[in-house]
Design a protein around this nucleic acid. Structure first.
Lengths: 358, 358
DNA sequence: ATGGGTTATGAGAGCGCTCCCAAAGAAAAT
DNA sequence: ATTTTCTTTGGGAGCGCTCTCATAACCCAT
């Protein structure tokens, strides 16, 4: 039906191709009358410019890719990722950009996806979720021509653009809070041990302990992988060691761990206190509301897109770096006094804000 | 660095542009020696064809769009959606297709996104999550030239291609199971009342009741919107009416409702039995394991992509229709006998399969 | 009037690929 | 040896846009 091209509109309006192009692209140098006339024709014919042709001629596709590498793709079982995607998607809309999603499931996927990522005339820029250090995809992308912004601190920071949350400070604050409340045997459930996220949160934990002059019992640090089940399993190991407080590196793991605690009939926070990380919506609707570090996930996605677009338009050098703060939200799971409870703000709570039961 | 084009490779290999194109596109009519030579050059130079140019010339972009309309975008707080996206993304990889994600947040988003969707040379086909009947986006997309497959039954089925789960039968089975177990006052918490999903599940519920010769108490049917909180709120309304079993139209709502039940100290399933819908991974890790209808979400996404690609390649007429079955998984929340528990299979359980605690 | 400066419009040359068609060469059939 | 057929290769015309540059039209100050 609608096989019109620029040329046809031009003919119908009695002007040249160039003029129609100017109207379509909102160029200022068009006479008011001409513009009106052309716009009317476009309106009535329902003309839409051809994206491929435009991309070819302008060397801009107005598309960005969001890549979740294989080593991180378990993230999809974690609510973290949908929230991030949402932020990225909304920001793309605001910038009139189209978002392409690349979920790398396995090695074949990676081989299949990589050339598509590297192809010219496909993506104006790439957002890459930080994964493991031995990520082949990561290295190939880094050395490509496409502007690349890494989400989360990469292993090799040198001259790579990235955006991250201040995991060290946040974890330190969370741990310090536990220390301040007087807990003596504070354990930690880590995330996937090879991720920088987990490494940094661990560093924050250790720093807090060191500053408080407390020695760390290594057996109280148990490895998880950010999943609910891994939290449960880790807590099973921790239970015999009688910790009185746990810093879980993700809310989901905290939930798994709390499940393990409740199964043996212990009380939270009286017997064991908990602090999580993420502040997912569910954290505030749990039977025992979770004290946790609020990550501005959606906001993080938005900032990432803003930064990437800036890189696309103004070049990638010098390397860009952006670190966002994360704030401790004190609720019930950590025990102690919950008076100075900060207000939780932000879009990621829509649809799950819970009216207090009567 | 890598500003090579087909022409350059041709020159380096001492052949014509056409021949290189044939090699790149795996056309059979190339001499073995020539192919080797060209492939070698491509290998060493790291040449990648320009996607925009290829799209323009071939009229194929190898991209499909996944569109979540405004009226359904709350879905993103529901784990249903990530799972679907994952299925779609994986299927895209298998077909060497790129997935573009369009999350419509609000009216402006819709206005912004629509032209991008309609643009030629952008998408080979569109997957549209079914939303409300008054969805403007839906109508514009239906009447466009792009092959369109609707996910979930649309309001106006006539000549639209769609794929759905057999919600009516599934809801009927779930309800019948409750009836069979002898429950007398069976309530239902619906999803968003204007969605076909919810309408169909409601129809299944009613059909089961009718076939069992039971009258329906309309006050035992309470409206939710698929969210956890709406389940909680709905249950608060239901509690004074003393139902002995609840069919919740989504797992997440069932979880919210169960929370309300536990808050007043009632026992599940002894005082109130539950059946959910979706069979999210969490359903089997809940303290009281949830009896629910297993939706093959990831598989659904895969099938959808397969069907859409078939439409792209072979035309959209006659209208395609595909209905997948959903099976009742009996666990603990419905009480009664849980012996004939089916095996739960499938990819969506990865990473959350739970070892039984010792 | 006359020139300099601005603004509006058109023409044309690509952007980097695909794909049809023609040509050349090799193989098979006569 | 000659014709026919098939395979392999090259040439050229687009695909539908953008963008630079030239031209035409118009403005105001002198």
């Amino acid at each position: 039906m609608n096989d019109l091209k620029l040329e046809d509109i031009a003919k119908l309006a009695g002007v040249s191709r160039s003029t129609v192009s100017r109207v379509v692209n909102a160029s200022p140098n068009v006479g008011a009358a001409t513009r009106k006339r052309v716009e009317k024709i476009i309106q009535t014919t329902g003309y839409h410019p051809n994206a491929a042709a435009r991309s070819l001629a302008s060397q801009r596709t107005n598309m960005i890719g969001l890549v979740i590498p294989r080593t991180t793709s378990a993230f999809f079982t974690d609510p973290y990722f949908p929230h991030l995607t949402q932020g990225v998607a909304f920001a793309c809309n605001n910038h009139h950009m189209t978002l392409s999603l690349f979920l790398v499931g396995n090695q074949e996927d990676e081989n299949e996806i990589t050339p598509r990522l590297l192809r010219r005339g496909m993506l104006d820029g790439i957002l890459l979720q930080s994964g493991n250090s031995d990520d082949m995809l990561f290295r190939r992308l880094i050395s490509s021509h496409v502007p690349l912004l890494v989400l989360g601190r990469p292993f090799e920071e040198k001259s790579v653009n990235y955006i991250d949350v201040d995991n060290i400070s946040a974890a330190k604050n969370a741990t310090s809070h536990l220390i301040r409340l007087g807990y003596q045997r504070i354990g930690m459930i880590t995330g996937a041990i090879r991720s920088t996220t987990s490494i940094d949160r661990q560093a924050g934990f250790k720093r807090a302990m060191a500053e408080a002059g407390k020695t760390i019992d290594p057996s109280l640090i148990v490895e998880g992988d950010f999943s609910e089940n891994s939290g449960y399993v880790a807590m099973k190991k921790l239970l015999p060691l009688r910790p009185d407080a746990i810093f879980a590196q993700s809310d989901v793991m905290a939930i798994g761990a709390m499940r393990a605690v409740q199964e043996v009939g212990l009380d939270i926070p009286k017997d064991i206190a908990f602090v999580g990380f993420d502040d997912l919506p569910i954290a505030s609707t749990l039977p025992i509301k979770l004290t946790t570090v609020h990550q501005p996930i959606t906001h993080f996605g938005i900032k990432a897109v803003d930064l990437l677009i800036d890189m696309i338009e103004k070049g990638t050098k010098p390397a860009k770096r952006m670190i966002l703060d994360a704030e401790l939200i004190i609720r019930d799971s950590c025990g102690g006094n919950a008076n100075n409870r900060p207000i939780v703000q932000g879009v990621e709570f829509e649809g799950s804000a819970l009216k207090a039961p009567a």
